[in-house]
Write a protein that binds this DNA or RNA. Sequence first.
RNA 1: GCGGACGUGGCGGAAUGGUAGACGCAGGGGACUUAAAAUCCCUUGAGCUUGCUCGUGCGGGUUCGAGUCCCGCCGUCCGUACCA
Length: 838
Amino acid sequence: MSERFDPATADARWQSVWDEAQSFRADDASTKPRSYVLEMFPYPSGRIHIGHVRNYTMGDVLARFKRMQGFEVLHPMGWDAFGMPAENAAMEKGVHPGGWTRDNIANMKAQLKRLGFALDWSREIATCEPDYYGQEQALFLDLYAAGLVYRKESAVNWDPIDCTVLANEQVIDGRGWRSGALVEKRKLNQWFLKITDFADELLDGLSTLEHWPEKVKLMQENWIGKSQGLQFAFQLSNGASLEVYTTRPDTIFGASFVAVAADHPVAQAIGTDEARDFIALCKQGGTTAAELETAEKLGFDTGLTARHPFTGADLPVYIANFVLMDYGTGAIMAVPGHDQRDFDFATKYALPITRVVAASAEDAARPFGTEAEAGDGVLVNSGFLDGLPVAEAKRAVIARAEAEGWGEGKTVWRLRDWGVSRQRYWGTPIPFVHCEVCGVVPVPKKQLPVTLPEDVDFSVPGNPLDRHPTWKHVDCPQCGHAARRETDTLDTFVDSSWYFLRFASQPADRPFDPAEIARWLPVGQYIGGIEHAILHLLYARFWTRALARIGKIEVAEPFASLFTQGMVTHETYSRVDAGNGQPIWYAPGEVARDGNGATLIADGAPVEIGRVIKMSKSKKNVVDPDEIVAKYGADAIRWFMLSDSPPERDLPWSEAGIEGCGKFVQRLWRLFGQYDGAATGEDKAVDRKAHQTIAAVAGDIESLGFNKAVARIYELTGVVEKAAPSASRSAAIKVVLLLIAPMMPHLAEEAFAAMGGAGLVADAAWPAVDPALLVDDEVTIAIQLNGKLRDTLVAPKGAAKDRLEAMALANAKVVAALDGATPKKVIVVPDRLVNIVV
RNA sequence: GCGGACGUGGCGGAAUGGUAGACGCAGGGGACUUAAAAUCCCUUGAGCUUGCUCGUGCGGGUUCGAGUCCCGCCGUCCGUACCA
């Protein structure tokens, strides 16, 4: 063997060996047990980011490990290729979104190949290609036929200068990012998917997802937001009635005003100039929840009153900017004492704040501080409800309302239907035609795909499809009259809601073959960022259930096991610009870093080391995976991605860290060079360590605890290095090679070949474990006095409690501490500790 | 605003309610070398009286025993429905 492992030649050599052998091609006809390992596919932004490397390395280790364990593994890769950045590039650089995207895909694919991922490239998908989005259009038509697609008015961010719809991301401090104009809400007729039809299923289904993180399930549960409440009608002073919904019917005696949303019919009907001005005021600003909820609470007194169903009091009716038309009925009864938004509003407009829930009946008159009290307690100042706990009072009010006929208990969901219309070019065209005679007409399936026109103009803001000279002019598929093609495209979340099905099966004439789907799905392990905890993962669950409901597939949940990985972060380097006081950021490559500080290479003067944050172009704290691979090899960067930080947490990138990984690659190479197949003699300690490590690492990989697996491999490596030559040692060297094979596959192949091994490590089996070698026969027992460690003793494993107690009581330190006294109590935990309480 | 998570040495972190700091990085000391690189060995939570005290964001609580469980704070991060 050569002295050093040379990734510059070895990496590419093994990558092409795997390619030619089609080592990672999933065989649909295989009789082996199957394992579908999937990482969230990337948006082709231009370059692979270190975060991608981390995500795909984790998936790769698992995929290779599953292969070693005898599974037929499906481990595919593709491109979430529609989206705004391509249009931005078109506007800024004058390139075509398609050309830009496809160039990026080519570059990023080459980058992924250099990292040696065990991917089945024969199943590669790009969502921007008609063979993918055409099938998506077919599925969309199926959902439409099943009544799960409809149109309704909905608000968007409108830039009044550019006359264009803005994404939330394009609204900065309430202004359009290019024009700087104050953004307003504008209503458009848009396409919706009936995800709310599945609210119950999506909620109940969470309990079947045993291998999902609890936090993600909890977030989805809260997002779906099932609540039981009371819907009831107030009689208004103008003779009309007003339906309101409340989740706190128990607090009804504390209602001091009623509020409606600005686009509620009651508000619209006021008709005075002042009311119109106020409603216009509510239209200012963007559509995000964060913006709506943090905006100053504003109200307009309509002059109407609403009669309280119990007290008969006349409550003022306000139009309020914090009431949402999309939730409940768009109107509320406001109880300032026990809801913070109502409290803020009542304080501002000097409305009464009444206590109706208190810790106890004696507490009924206690004044409020500066906040509402939303907590539990008993009802006070509430007539027939006095003394009841909150939950009972809720039931009592609902029962009374139903008995008297003015209201009913109702389940309401926070989840809203999914608006999928986007007024943009670079997305899946929505396959519909608007005909003056027939109305909205679906494009017949045989005319699919509806493809995007290539000749588009990005020189002015707005949707190029809308102003294209010919594309949108078509004949009605139904009556043949001149008609207009739908120019909205689908939300890119639709593209990512079924790609995992297309990976499993991709016939040319259908979206997928249900039989193949049944064989591969659900995905055994899905890995991606926590930022997708709600939207992407909920939409994908919804699509799967919707396709199941209409009989296309028989899968209920797409992802059996989910893992959310942390971000890759890096220190920031900056200096304050003397001129404008703004920081100037420097890239890691421009900076020389030692143990104490950092200096700018260009002038040798110090720069400030800032916080460790997510890598971002604006802060320049990015590193390019290609440069790292060129310098240290693919295995070193893969090893770094798995080391130290637990995979669900952030991983701070460091030069020192990657250098250490490069050194470890060489250290292993030297160890592998010491392999001697002819060595003889047994070394029980080495055997034991090797087998314990095999079992532990397998468990760690299975549970994606890569950092722990890495630590154990370091330990075993240290033990084997120090051991004297023996057959055990040689066997252990081979064990190390197989354990690191999923993580550092190039090194493993190169060393295996140099040892004279036959075949590929990529096809090797995971080493077998001898259970007899897993247990030690002696354990160290802690001796505690009052829970504090005083000494330890060595005892045979499984020693009886009274024997351990006797050994501990005979301990010199214990004898000294007791000084002849009898201990109050002795707690013995077998194989663990003896705690003597004095 | 709302929902969710996280917080342990100089740094990343380990620890079924049971010996806090495994393993790695960085630091200190040494070996090898003409020298350097590479490699190897030893050492490294803090304090002091050198065998004891204190130590897991802060304040309480439960327990024989709390990094771990409970209550209340503080800080940071993620999501918030048109970023992907």
